[in-house]
Amino acid sequence: MNGMNRRGIVAVLLVAATAAAACSRGDSSRVLIQNKGSDTLVNLAQAWAEHYRTVKPGVAIAVSGGGSGTGIAALINGTVDIANASREMHAEEKEQVRAHNGKDAIEHRVARDAIVVYISKSNPIAKINVADLACIYAEDGTCQSWTALGVEVPGCADQKIIRVSRQSNSGTYEFFRDAVLGKGRDFKLGSRDMQGSKDVVDLVAKTPCAIGYSGMGYVTADVKVLCLAKDASSPCVAPTPESAKSGEYPLSRWLYMLTLGEPQGDVKGYLDWILSPAGQQIVVQSGFVPVN
């Protein structure tokens, strides 16, 4: 169905296979940490899990995606040890965690990300501002064609803007909605809602009329990244590790891992390692920005 779940399943299988191997060696002290959620984080979480096997062979981490909403729902139901989220938790989600588990959810910042806006390579536009993005994506927005933004896109029928977005449980979807459209505003219906960030990149790469967004870790050379300005009078900022870190890039955000209460034992060991220089090195390799 989508790249995410497939990757998630592969990750689970891999971890299960290692787990089975560990068992057959008679290692009875093996611990399994369940880790689920954000699609933006899933590749990074998987890279961490794989490296951690060499750091601590007795601990296996099962990673799956599904979206930030899915991860938080699993945390509420108490079925995961660590939930991944690419947005902050809502107040009602925090309440539900407390009501169901008697513990508070603790948010750990594990990486920094920028939401990158991109278009097809044939599109001549080079920069855009947040107000224009809202004009394209918002319910009451009026920007329907590339001509309205002052460009002519070769190979694009009727110059119609094809909005590519994400399914509604995505943390990226919610972050983009709140940050670009403003709180309380909705997306205009009729956008192509993809199941994963990778699907957005793939579709935009093949569609001259398209515009899409996702976390910076997913961007490939097949799409053209836009330089983004806060408003019409500000200079535009390219999404780079530096501009994401400083917050100068308008759509930068934290990526979180969530636990029930303060982490203990092996979960704490894993989170500490993630925040250590070795763990943060993998953040850089995955195309995101380290915490410090």
């Binding site: 899915t70 509420i76 993809m194």
Partner: peptide, 28 residues
């Protein structure tokens, strides 16, 4: 997977089944 009433065969649409499949997993 776009929520809109199609005006031609070249418009994107979303079906009832696809909506259930993509959204059920996320809802509490």
């Amino acid at each position: 997977h776009a929520v809109q009433i199609p005006h031609s065969p070249l418009d994107s649409v979303r079906t009832l089944t696809a909506t259930i499949a993509s959204e059920l997993g996320e809802t509490s």
